[in-house]
Design a protein around this nucleic acid. Structure first.
Length: 163
DNA sequence: CGCGCGATTGTA
DNA sequence: ACAATCGCGCGT
């Protein structure tokens, strides 16, 4: 299957979040279809980690196509993909993944099930041979809502679910 | 250097 | 409705 390259990731985070629906995620031997995403941007998004530049969010200020993985509530990891060009801080959170045998619903569940930890932070998803994304389902329809678990920027409907 | 809290989830 | 659980980020 055709691997997604930097021209795919180097776009507006909202655009990439929509486009990732129906794409295939490959992590080692495991392959799944992305069913839910959320976009986060720094400059105009109060809810984003990159609203302020910090050591943790610095990767979101870097070039697109890298994994951004952080620990939340002291026990769950969340997987993001950095989007847009350098100094345009943004990322897409992977919230839903459909595997052949199970549908993982929620970012914490995905990382726990696949064994994704902070060890996998900062991986180049374009060049890596173990962790990357490929084309998947051709035509995907979706709906959008406010993002889950945040109190700020509720007006932004940047959560996307495939139908 | 101390302390409150979070892009979550399972259980009551 | 709430506990689990800990590193980050901001204030002192």
């Amino acid at each position: 299957m055709l691997k997604l390259n930097n021209s795919f990731y180097n776009k507006h985070a909202v655009e990439v979040a929509k486009n990732l629906l129906g794409k295939t995620m490959v992590f080692g031997k495991i392959k799944g279809i992305i069913t839910e995403t959320e976009a986060y941007r720094g400059t105009d998004d109060e809810a984003s980690h990159a609203f302020n530049f910090t050591p943790r969010s610095s990767i979101m200020f870097g070039p697109s196509g890298y994994s951004y993985i952080y620990l939340i509530y002291g026990m769950y990891y969340c997987l993001n993909i950095v989007t847009e060009e350098e100094n345009s801080p943004s990322a897409v959170l992977i919230r839903g993944l459909k595997l052949p045998d199970i549908h993982l619903d929620g970012p914490g569940k995905i990382c726990k099930y696949l064994g994704i930890t902070k060890e996998h932070n900062g991986i180049n998803l374009v060049t890596d041979n173990n962790f990357y994304f490929t084309e998947g389902i051709n035509s995907v329809t979706y709906s959008s809502t406010s993002r889950i678990g945040i109190k700020k920027a509720i007006d932004k409907k940047w959560r996307f679910l495939s139908n």
